[in-house]
Amino acid sequence: MNTRFTMVVLGATLSACAPSARDLVARRHFREAICAAHDDRDPAVRRAVSDAVVRDMGLTVHAQLVRAPLIAELQQARARHSTVAMLRFDLQSDALPIDETTVRASFGSERSLFGSSEPRRGGGVRSATIDALAAVTRERLPRARQGSTYLTFDNLLRGAAAVLTGGISLAFQPMQMQPATYTIAPSDAEIRRAAPRASDLALHVHSTGCTTLSPGGTRCRWYAIIEEVPDAELVVRLEVTHRASAPRRRDEACYLQTERRMSLGRVGDLERTLPERFGTRAIAIERVGPSRVIVY
């Protein structure tokens, strides 16, 4: 009796019970589950929590090719040499009780999505930044310039010291003003002047990134520009990375990152396969096709 009483008292006072990650997930206590998975060295636990989080996120996606006269013109001009297209990718997630979630997508192309071959370096499918667009339109963007200024904190201190000490400080530290250099990015007007066609294409890229919906959920949109040699073996690779994090008391936040890599189809067949696969409605991300999921 005494032993049992002692054990009960010790159990109540000396340690708190650790809930299982499975129970936490079942009750949608995702923040706790993320920290449980963060600490657990068992990959199976991390995978189970990650699967539950992603499943409840209800990720739905849609992909389509963007129609633009300049794209058609470029495609026509290079019909024999390459495929030129612009891809739009939309994603939506439900609202989960997680403090912070981030989703990002990246594009690429390679011969075999799940095989052992190395991804093509500098592949022809890239996020539609102005640099990528200018590469497709064969325009050269203006370079960033280097500027310099003598208006620096150090120089101000030197000057103030010389004034306040009546010039005595110059005996110890000569008045040699050193300029600081800085980078001046080209202005929009300069970019438009140097790369009007890429700027024209950039008008079709809008609302990139993620927005929070009301009453909850997230909608994201990304664009990719494709210029690929006609090669039936090349597929468009899409990587959707999802990171869920929960702040931890007195410590760094816990997080669980899931990377899902999938194929959107062969480069040359996108015109046909994307409408077939996605239609007019967004579909669950699992229905896009075989995917490889990596949990960090």
Binding site: C35, R67, A95, T218, R250, R281, A282
Partner: peptide, 26 residues
């Protein structure tokens, strides 16, 4: 650009009060 149809997003809530164990300092 064509706007696809998305389902109205769900709002998933925790069942019961949120426990605090793993979020405590390890």
């Amino acid at each position: 650009q064509f706007e696809p149809t998305f389902e109205r997003p769900r709002v998933v809530r925790e069942q019961g009060p949120s426990p605090t164990f793993y979020r405590l300092e390890p």
